[in-house]
Design a protein around this nucleic acid. Structure first.
Lengths: 343, 343
DNA sequence: GTTGCCAATGAAAGCGCTTACATTGTATAG
DNA sequence: CTATACAATGTAAGCGCTTTCATTGGCAAC
């Protein structure tokens, strides 16, 4: 690998001049500039970003912390953030923790992944909401240049891109109500996740306003996975409640529910209606297409990336980008998985 | 951010000693070692990987080149490779090109992403098969420490993790034949992709051996997307051929086919059977579950990562890992989307 | 008491860049 | 013609580490 020095020698100039033709071409004479570019081409030189980062104390890199790449929820966020960053000449590097471990190991692995980002001198970290808010808050406190996306951690201290899960829950309930449903069950996400409890609370509250109590028997604990949704639906069927509608707190589970319905010969939405949450890729791909709550992950991830960029711009005394929207409100996307059973 | 020097001063030793307690603790006396670790903890020191990389000329990082994070095919590969690398203390960094561009722009963006990996001093690059083999080959020639996964580029020169798409195609045909299907159509992937032509060729060849010719009217060009599968199925329906089986060259399209069947009131598999390809997450999630050809992406990606590790180990005169399997053979996974129509 | 060896540490160079500062040459003003 | 300014370039220090080589002191052997 040729270095700046090699190029400089080849072009008969000093390495400073070569560096300048890269970073401040306006400072170098046209004639020498072309000598240099010729030498660069000839030697096949490629800049060593590592050395550049060290010298300038800026990596032009933002880290993203996630626990997996295989997720209908996280993947679009990675995509959105990394592409936007790329457009501004920044680089996104994502660290994935090892999951499927015991609690202690998994916390350990989360910290390792997080440290690896910091060690790599990322200029900020976008944290996806895959762990408990308290843990996120803890990390964000250690490393203030953090941005949390999808959940909020105790307020003003830190930057968050938030989404109103509570209203989402209400919207789901409202839609079911409007279509005449009373006998309703809900499948939750992991109980320790804030977003899940908010979605649930919104749903329950709205129902309660219409004098429908969602009791312990109408609430099934899920885990945001297809299989989880499936298991829950099996239990629902076994319970003999014959609900006319089920609210699954995310689309993966909604698909699981639909799948179990299919197996049991239950027609969707004729026999039972389903509403999901997230409006992920899955929702348009299901048959019937899923009525769900839209969470604009692309916008949110781009907003997070913009915040990240502004952290870096701030340090470099560059003029910041326009501040993005940081709080997002859900909307209901009506498709074909909810039947109107009004008499 | 405290530096090694700061820690050294705090502990009353030289920076060399601090460095050694990190990298060669056996060389430093127990007493000083504990002084140093105390100082590290106290100062909140975290190592600067950038500086370390520069000094050691090794980044402990392997790059992965892809075009998107949102893919049932690529995501598991990212997952598998990055987790394995992580287990060995290496770091995977993935560069995603911007897609949805014109051809010229997209080539440009691919090269930019690729360069950004090289500039970051990755020790090898794992390239996913999202572009034409010729382009992959071209890049691999420029940067010999490349590993291609999912397709083969002209042989022995370069390292590849390959999969026998041709046999996969044959397997699909064989299964359909065995179940009594004669009136068959096929939906291909993008015609410029090697894997797609191989899948198609295997399918056609096997059929031909049983005196079934797949003519131009029975072959529909798809693009490996859900929507592509859907469109193709619509055309198939409109064509009035009423095939008893359709072979979709990947699972995304198979799902599209199923979806269109649903809309048209065609029962799967009673009215028409479907076989997919890849055995992606989608295939177990569909109703009915999809009969498909398994491509063991986890194994393949781990094999690619192992190869990558060995490249680095080679440079560092470390003892290499056991060489992984590099060629993978498909198997057919029988689920419920193919009906036996033997009389 | 020398000598030699080895374990533990420090001094300093160097990885490939950037950048403040110094230097040079030339155009412009007086 | 000298003084001044400025554009173009070079010199060299330094970013935070690693690592070679030198130094030191203790201990075993003689």
């Amino acid at each position: 690998m040729p270095t700046l020095q090699d190029v400089a020698k080849l072009a008969g100039v000093s390495s400073a001049t070569v560096s300048r033709t890269f970073n401040n071409p306006e400072l170098v004479d046209f004639a020498t500039r072309s000598k240099v570019t010729a030498a660069i081409r000839k030697s096949g030189y490629t800049r060593n970003e590592t050395a550049r980062s060290l010298a300038t104390r800026s990596s032009r890199t933002v880290g993203i912390l996630t626990d997996t790449f295989v997720s209908n929820y996280f993947a679009p966020i990675l995509e959105g953030a990394s592409k936007l960053l790329g457009q501004y000449g920044y680089y996104a590097t994502v660290a994935a923790t090892e999951h499927n471990l015991s609690d202690a190991e998994s916390t350990d692995s989360q910290i390792r992944a997080w440290r690896s980002l910091i060690d790599r001198q990322v200029e900020s970290i976008i944290m996806l909401a895959f762990m408990e808010s308290a843990d996120l808050a803890h990390l964000a406190k250690e490393f203030p240049k953090s941005i949390v996306i999808g959940t909020s951690i105790d307020a003003d201290q830190h930057q968050c891109i938030t989404f109103d899960h509570y209203i989402g829950g209400r919207l789901a309930a409202e839609h079911l109500l409007k279509n005449g449903h009373h006998n309703i069950v809900m499948i939750t996400g992991p109980t320790h996740k804030q977003d899940s409890v908010q979605r649930g609370q919104g749903f329950i509250d709205k129902l309660k306003e219409h004098d429908i109590q969602l009791g312990i028997n109408q609430i099934f604990i899920g885990d945001y996975t297809f299989q989880g949704g499936r298991n829950a639906m099996r239990k629902i069927i076994e319970s003999g409640q014959n609900p006319t509608a089920v609210f699954a707190q995310n689309d993966d589970m909604a698909l699981g529910v639909a799948s179990e319905c299919y197996n049991a010969g239950i027609a969707v939405p004729k026999d039972t209606s389903i509403v999901g949450f997230d409006n992920s890729n899955l929702s348009t791909v299901m048959s019937p297409p899923l009525t769900t709550i839209d969470q604009p992950l692309m916008l949110m991830s781009r907003a997070a990336a913009t915040l990240a960029l502004n952290i870096s711009y701030g340090r470099a005394h560059q003029t910041p980008l326009e501040n993005p929207q940081t709080h997002f409100i859900p909307t209901l996307i009506e498709r074909d998985s909810v039947a109107n059973i009004r008499t």
